[in-house]
């Protein structure tokens, strides 16, 4: 039972992270389409932001399995 609940909690965390990273992706693509000359800056900032969101999701997942 605990295993099932932990899996649901981890799944919810992943849904949140998925929405967040998806938003970053769309906005970054929009920005690149508008200003292709700054593609390098946009890409590294996109990776940085995705990494930050991923960090929150990973903490949630790890906590879900420890709790």
């Amino acid at each position: 039972m605990t295993g099932t609940l932990a899996a649901i909690g981890a799944g919810l965390a992943v849904i949140g992270a998925g929405i967040g990273i998806g938003n970053i992706g769309t906005k970054a693509m929009d920005a690149i389409a508008r200003q292709p000359e700054v593609v390098g800056d946009i890409r590294s900032n996109m990776i940085l932001m995705a990494a930050l969101i991923e960090g929150a999701a990973l903490i949630a997942i790890i906590l879900a399995f420890f709790a």
Partner: peptide
């Protein structure tokens, strides 16, 4: 990969 990890723990 996270989904796979979860299914695995599950």
């Amino acid at each position: 990969s996270i989904l796979a990890l979860i299914s695995l723990f599950y």
